[in-house]
């Protein structure tokens, strides 16, 4: 196996990619040697230290093959350190990459960019949606590496029942309008350090609360949204990420809440009444060792699994991001 391939002069690039079962269905940029070399410019010493064998193939990507996927995804030069950090994070055992790629659940590798790593990324309005090239291509590049090198091809080793739009790309940055220090500061990093956090996640679930004018009211709405009977988190457990819109965050901050007190409160209030769970699912939960706490189910193993960040623009919306359950939110410092 060689690291370069010759594309026949008469081949149509997109057809050639399709014929090999590569790509995610969207057009890609051909990873010519010049483009890959440009993507590799400026990497620090030890940039390859986080590269590890990727399941299910067991192959370990090289810097050049990662850069080739970054080019295909449309990344701009300079993004590679952030992509490598995200790849390192999903490769940690706690993330459970094999399980998250092969599962029937629709989870995707979500990437949250924090601190000084946010340069050029977007954490403002429409941060989960289109409009910013770095946001759009970071998650796509990560998914392409997992597809191409890891071998998690849809329909064969990616066994997702329905998949989700997040499998194309799912990356965003923390807001610079947060009233609190960033998420990594609650995970052992200095505030402002360049950090990416990954989680095998469902797409964001909107939390609309235009009526509440207090932090208590907003948290009541969020708790109600998180108490969903069909979430993996109910019985597989694992992390959640609550992404507060800046207006909700400002109201909570004004009323004395912070991320730690928010998650403690949600742990107590995001409960699923037993009668809302079908008898068959209750039996399934027992097989997983999960029983109700009194007359309601909890949504994970404890408040430490309820992570809080701020992102978005103007408006009274926040987002709850449930996870695969058999995963962890993993944060890694970007090597510069």
């Amino acid at each position: 196996m060689t690291e370069t391939l010759d594309v026949p002069a008469d081949a149509d690039w997109e057809d050639w990619v399709d014929d090999r079962g590569w790509g995610d269905g969207l057009p890609t940029v051909a990873p010519t040697e010049d483009r890959v070399d440009a993507m590799l410019q400026g990497l620090p010493d030890g940039a390859a230290a986080g590269l590890a064998a990727l399941p299910p193939s067991g192959l370990t990507p090289t810097l050049r093959s990662v850069a080739a996927n970054a080019v295909m995804a449309g990344c701009v030069p300079g993004m590679l350190p952030v992509l490598l950090a995200a790849l390192e994070a999903v490769s940690t055992p706690a993330y459970n990459l094999h399980g998250t790629l092969a599962t029937t659940h629709p989870c995707a590798p979500m990437v949250l960019v924090s601190g000084s790593a946010r340069a050029g990324f977007h954490g403002g309005g429409n941060c989960f949606g289109p409009g910013n090239r770095r946001n759009a291509t970071l998650g796509r590049a990560l998914s392409l590496v997992l597809l191409h090198v890891g071998g998690a091809r849809p329909g064969t080793l990616d066994r997702s029942t329905q998949g989700s739009p997040a499998k194309y790309t799912f990356s965003f940055a923390e807001s610079d309008e947060s009233p609190w220090a960033g998420l990594p500061s609650r995970r052992g990093f200095d505030d402002g350090e360049p950090v990416v956090s990954v989680m095998a996640a469902e797409p964001p679930h909107n939390v609309n609360d235009h009526g509440s004018t207090t932090g208590d009211g907003i948290l009541t709405t969020i708790a109600g949204t998180m108490a969903e009977t069909g979430s993996n988190n109910v019985y597989v457990r694992g992390p959640h990420l609550l992404v507060l819109g800046p207006e909700h965050a400002a109201t909570l901050h004004r009323d004395g809440w912070d991320p730690v007190s928010i998650r403690e409160h949600l742990w107590k209030t995001a409960r699923i009444p037993v009668e809302k769970v079908s008898p068959g699912n209750r039996e399934q939960f027992v097989e997983w060792g999960v029983k109700p706490d009194g007359d309601a189910y909890t949504v994970s193993t404890g408040p430490e699994q309820l992570h809080v960040a701020v992102a978005g623009g103007a408006g009274k919306h926040s987002a709850w991001i449930p996870s695969f359950g058999g995963t962890e939110l993993v944060s890694v410092r970007v090597r510069r």
Partner: peptide
């Protein structure tokens, strides 16, 4: 056109 193979990876040294 010559490209860098996006599927390239190093196999484990000892799979047996």
């Amino acid at each position: 056109m010559r490209i860098v193979d996006p599927t390239y990876g190093l196999a484990p040294a000892d799979q047996e």
